[in-house]
Design a protein around this nucleic acid. Structure first.
Lengths: 237, 237, 237, 237
DNA sequence: GATGAATGAGACTTCATTCAT
DNA sequence: TATGAATGAAGTCTCATTCAT
């Protein structure tokens, strides 16, 4: 693996704390809040890259959305590639953080697993931005994710949670033995991801809308069923 | 849904997408052949669009790969968009044709289902081109698939096959009742698709290669298990 | 003046008189009538160049309109420039021929002049193709007209006619003395030309249609009035 | 008539269309100036479009003449079509402004009319750019002029002036009654326009140069004579 | 005489990036 | 910190013309 780096953390902060937020138009303000500006750019970039992919994204559109000048992007992020890296890391951070909000230890293992599945399903279905960003990154052969030091690091706690749930389920003889946590996560992700990632081609194939609330509600139940059928299958115990 | 159209090819010749380049230079080969030229362009386009997505693809690279002049692409396909439509339809045709090669009626319903899952898994895993093309199309909101008349048409036989299998499995009381064929296909697709579509980000997350033959062989078994556990679950019968 | 040449006359004719006009589709006929083919190309070219100007004209459109292959144009006319020359000369020939159909000697000079004006007005107004071709040629600095040997040659009889009319009118003391034939022709042309040549910009300026039959009929009277007022003006006699 | 729009310029500076290039290289000149850059592009475009027509004009040549980068044209004007619209409107503005510099009320009506004719004659003869631009626009069926909101608007004062002159001439019984201002303008334009618009084809026809100062001076007198003969014709009073 | 596939130069346009202020 | 004018490389597409059959 090559040298990795992270673009997520803003290099400086709080240094111009003395400058009060100007009440006058930002346009004429001269000095603005560096942290806020950086954040506005980052959020605009996350949306733009999710919407159009890397090469379809336009620096100008990001500027317009963030209400900043072109130069600011280069000032804060260096170039389009590094801005994209920052957007990618930021996006991963959101879902990983949310996963860690689950309490894995207290609950019934089946319920804990169900909660993780539902969280994943809901996160991916509610806002397609994350899914689209990941798809785009894979179309680019993951060349940016590879440069990131934070992405593998953020994955560890997720795997730990899954292993904890599995271990307790197997100990209580509710789950199959020999279930691989990594592979289980891949299955969950696949089942929760596909109708978002392939929403449009599936719609063309089947001539129906895969983002309909009713369909989603039903699909959510099915995904949980599929995973629990498998994990509780007597054949494997 | 707007008026749809199809850009799919003229008189077919049964090529796969990757027939090898002719041995001698076309330049000295003598006979010029419109059908062959068109086909060479189409195959090069399928590869290029799969590799780089629509906006990342370069007309010049397609020309080089197809060993034709730029103008030929515009002569045969009109523009980049329509060439992409033709490539997309051609790609769908390959998997849909392969699915129809399965014999759905004779076999044991569980074996028939397993065969369909394995065919899907193998098709997607063996050559990532199709998966990448579909991902790209979804990143573009399916705007090209929507223009296609042939894509929904090609989907009908697949659904029919699945329904036939399901009906027989339910009649023989091996399958759950009330399984929706469409939703089942989405599950199968999700389980077979994710490690190809998300190969690179998953690799970054888990620091391992999701295209390794050993891993794939194991994953293939698991996917079949997951689907059959669900479909044969006593709880639903 | 540079060496001039003419592209108007077809180089060969009647040599395949033995081949009967085929009743079957021209498409499969193999041999076609060379003279007719050349003529079809020429007429299509006259229309195309009039419609789109030289650089806006498309060889392909001319082929389609003439129902011939691209190569035929190069076979019969050499290249786009020479085809344009042929179209230009052909167009001039039509109006010059028509002018010579007037009988200049017998009539009352005022009536003869009036007939020439009306013929010019009608010719230009009825079909804007000629006007457009001339405009285009002037936009190209007359570089093609300069190459033509036939254009100045065709002008002589027109000037002769005008001089004849003028001389008789002056002899009969109906016309001013010292009227220059050339300059008079320029005036007539200007008055008959402008609403055709500038039809569209005048329409934008004045927000009315300068090709309306009623307006044209009134304009025709006015043009005759303007010229005759001038030519019969007492002040100049 | 469709929705119209105007591409005419930002804060004006009273240039004519052909202000000379600045002495020192812009590159080393220091200050960059958006207004000046825009104006340089506009002037270069007016010349290029007049010289070569729309489709014969080359963006690269305009860039070279304006000493700017290609991107600037698209930054300031959007595309070739809109640049052409701006050039067209700017050209019309020049002649319409000049017409309004005449004092229509004070003078003898015949003198006022004569002044307008001479101004028109001189404007069109002195610099053929305007005539060529108009010709080209008409060859394009006036499709750009139709999009302009300013062109019909600029025409109003011209018509008002003519009507004022006519009314006073008729009141003083020097002019014919029932002279239509619009039609009169068309006549004046035709007489002043033709030797410029058709300069090259007339030269080929008559084998003489219609831009010679002597010929122009004589023609100028004749045009005035033709119009005044008509407008003062006793027959119509 | 006729066909139409193929060519290649050059057109318009886009866009990430730099730089003087 | 912020601005926005300017750059230049590269992209898609067009079109007159040639050539093997």
């Amino acid at each position: 693996m090559k040298a990795t780096r992270s673009a997520a953390a803003p290099p400086e902060e709080g240094h111009t704390a003395s400058s009060p937020a100007p009440a006058k138009s930002r346009r004429t303000a001269g000095k603005r809040n560096a942290v806020a500006t950086r954040q506005r750019i980052l959020e605009a970039a996350m949306a733009e890259f999710a919407e159009h992919g890397f090469s379809g994204s336009r620096i100008d559109r990001i500027c317009a959305a963030a209400d900043v000048n072109v130069g600011m992007i280069y000032h804060y992020f260096g170039n389009k590639n590094d801005l994209y890296l920052a957007a990618l890391e930021s996006s991963y951070k959101i879902i990983r953080d949310r996963e860690q909000s689950l309490d894995v230890n207290d609950a019934d293992p089946l319920l804990a697993l169900r909660a993780l599945i539902e969280l994943t399903f809901d996160f991916l279905s509610t806002d397609p931005h994350f899914v689209r960003l990941i798809m785009n990154e894979n179309l680019m052969m993951g060349r940016t994710a590879q440069r990131s030091a934070t992405i593998p690091h953020m994955t560890r706690p997720l795997l730990d949670s899954l292993r904890t749930i599995l271990k307790r389920g197997q100990k209580e003889k509710v789950f199959q033995k020999n279930i691989d946590a990594e592979n289980l996560y891949v299955s969950i992700l696949g089942l929760c991801f596909i109708h978002v990632s392939n929403r449009h081609t599936l719609s063309s194939m089947f001539q129906r809308d895969f983002a309909e609330p009713d369909w989603l509600a039903q699909r959510r139940l099915i995904v949980v069923d599929v995973v629990t059928s498998y994990i509780t299958d007597k054949a494997g115990k």
